[in-house]
Design a binder for these strands. Structure first.
Length: 265
DNA sequence: AAGGAAAACAACCGCCTCTGG
DNA sequence: GCCAGAGGCGGTTGTTTTCCT
């Protein structure tokens, strides 16, 4: 059983794209767009390729607004921060990095950032005094603005409270936390000044059973986490949206191990 | 200079979601 | 409401390039 393949793989070309194929696809897209149908596109464009392959090639490589080249430190920070919050939702993360594709971000994470993190983890384990390890390649730098230790003294009924002590072997965003995180991706108060396109994530599931809806056009954004009374929100207006306090204790300052174990190390 | 290892990148696979009939 | 097809996504694999010995 199973779903029928989108094309006959024995009859379409596979593997690396030739410059001629790239040119044909570019030319067709320039003149016609997708026409709302990727499956039919290869035939119309005179390409002996699977429609999905064409789509991938266009989105990941040929699109005119694609940014090629190395990632900046700022982009690193955005990726790390979002990964720590939402996990491997590469398309969501990529949407916050203009010109970057989900494939780009995913590859970059798998080949570089993960190793950087691992290296830092090793270094930090060799250091007994965590308070002196301030140069954790932005691990500390990007996380610290989101952490408000004083919040633990806040009214828990208002959800200005974080508790990740009960579930330390999971990703921070999966923890049974009870907190609110508000930060602004546009302004330096949160050091996430890169983004220009807030994302809205509602009904954000953590167990795979729930759906999610994401809008990159909304003016405000909310990240709700299941199994906890928490959500993160940031305003598109340019102001930090402090609703019940600014915090999301990712665990960096108190225990890097907690954080790192969430990444599967 | 050659060969092997590691890193980086591109592409594919299969599942899930969405949408139109 | 159901179903089939198309799009989208994340994980994985394959290929190429770079680095090291």
């Amino acid at each position: 059983m199973g779903r029928a393949p989108c094309c006959d793989k024995t009859k379409v070309k596979r593997g690396p794209w030739s410059p001629e194929e790239d040119a044909a696809l570019k030319h067709y897209m320039h003149n016609n767009g997708t026409g709302g149908n990727w499956i039919a596109l290869p035939h119309k464009a005179g390409l002996n390729r699977c429609g999905k392959s064409c789509r991938l090639r266009w989105l990941n490589y040929l699109r005119p607004d694609i940014k090629h080249g190395g990632f900046t430190e700022e982009e690193d920070n955005v990726i790390w921060t979002l990964y720590s919050n939402i996990g491997s939702r590469w398309s969501v993360i990529a949407s916050q990095l203009p010109g970057r594709t989900d494939n780009d971000v995913k590859n970059y994470w798998n080949t570089k950032l993960k190793k950087k993190l691992l290296a830092r983890s090793t270094n930090s384990n060799e250091t007994t005094d965590n308070s002196t390890t301030t140069d954790h390649l932005n691990l500390t730098r990007f996380s610290s603005p989101l952490i408000n230790p004083k919040a633990e003294n806040s009214d828990q009924g208002n959800s200005a409270y974080c508790d990740h002590s009960t579930n330390s072997d999971t990703l921070p965003y999966l923890m049974n936390v009870n907190c609110v995180q508000s930060f602004d991706l546009k302004h330096p108060t949160s050091q996430l000044s890169y983004s220009s396109n807030p994302v809205e994530v509602s009904d954000f599931g953590t167990n795979g059973n729930t759906g999610s809806s994401i809008s990159s056009t909304s003016s405000s954004s909310t990240l709700a986490m299941e199994n906890c009374t928490s959500f993160a929100s940031w305003a598109g207006t340019g102001n930090v949206n402090i609703e019940d306090g600014i915090l999301l204790d990712l665990g960096f300052d108190s225990s890097n191990d907690t954080f790192l174990s969430g990444f599967g190390f």
